Amino acid sequence: TEKEKEVKRLAKERGLSPDQVRELAQRAGFSPDQAKQIADEFA
C-alpha cells in the first residue's frame, strides 16, 4: 500500500532499527501484527 511504502521509505532514510520501524508503522495506523511484518523486513 501507499502508506506501507511511505513507512518503509522513512525507515530506510532514517536508518531505523526494526523496533523503531514497528513503532513508526503503528503510529501510521497499522495493526501490531502488520507493523511487526513490516519491521521484520528490516531485521
Rank of each mutant, 00 (worst) to 15 (best):
T1G: 13
T1S: 14
T1M: 14
T1P: 14
T1K: 14
E2H: 10
E2V: 11
E2A: 10
K3S: 09
K3W: 12
K3F: 09
K3M: 13
K3I: 12
K3E: 07
E4Q: 12
E4M: 15
E4V: 15
E4Y: 13
K5S: 11
E6M: 14
E6N: 10
E6G: 06
E6T: 08
E6A: 13
E6P: 01
V7I: 15
V7H: 02
V7P: 00
V7Q: 00
K8M: 05
K8C: 10
R9L: 05
R9D: 12
R9K: 08
R9P: 00
R9Y: 03
L10H: 13
L10N: 10
A11I: 03
A11T: 00
A11N: 01
A11L: 02
A11E: 04
A11F: 02
A11S: 05
A11W: 03
A11V: 01
K12A: 10
K12N: 10
K12E: 13
K12L: 06
E13D: 07
E13H: 06
E13C: 10
E13Y: 04
E13N: 06
E13A: 11
R14S: 13
R14N: 14
R14G: 14
R14E: 13
R14F: 12
R14Y: 13
R14A: 14
G15I: 03
G15Y: 04
G15F: 06
L16N: 02
L16V: 02
L16P: 00
S17M: 08
S17D: 11
S17K: 09
S17L: 09
S17W: 06
S17V: 06
S17I: 05
S17P: 05
S17E: 07
P18M: 09
P18L: 10
P18I: 12
P18W: 14
D19W: 04
D19K: 11
D19V: 09
D19I: 09
D19T: 11
Q20A: 10
Q20W: 05
Q20Y: 03
Q20V: 04
V21R: 00
V21A: 05
V21H: 00
V21K: 00
R22H: 09
R22L: 14
R22F: 15
R22P: 04
R22G: 06
R22Q: 13
R22V: 15
E23D: 12
E23I: 11
L24E: 06
L24A: 07
L24Y: 03
A25G: 03
A25T: 00
A25E: 01
A25D: 01
A25F: 02
Q26F: 05
Q26N: 04
Q26Y: 04
Q26L: 14
R27P: 01
R27C: 11
A28S: 12
A28W: 12
A28T: 07
A28V: 14
G29K: 00
G29Q: 01
G29L: 00
G29E: 01
G29T: 00
G29N: 02
G29Y: 00
F30V: 03
F30M: 06
F30Q: 01
F30H: 01
F30S: 01
S31V: 03
S31P: 11
S31N: 09
P32Y: 08
P32M: 04
P32A: 08
P32W: 06
P32Q: 08
P32E: 13
P32I: 06
D33F: 03
D33I: 12
D33P: 06
D33E: 15
D33H: 09
Q34A: 13
Q34F: 07
A35E: 02
A35W: 01
A35D: 00
A35R: 00
A35I: 04
A35M: 01
K36I: 11
K36T: 10
K36M: 12
K36S: 12
Q37N: 09
Q37M: 12
Q37P: 00
Q37W: 05
Q37C: 09
Q37E: 10
I38T: 01
I38V: 04
I38A: 02
I38R: 00
I38Y: 02
I38W: 03
I38E: 01
I38Q: 01
A39L: 03
A39H: 01
A39I: 02
A39M: 06
A39R: 03
A39N: 01
A39P: 01
A39C: 04
A39T: 03
D40M: 10
D40R: 10
D40L: 12
D40F: 07
D40N: 10
E41Y: 05
E41H: 05
E41G: 06
E41S: 12
E41M: 08
F42H: 04
F42Q: 03
F42R: 03
F42G: 03
F42N: 03
A43G: 08
A43E: 14
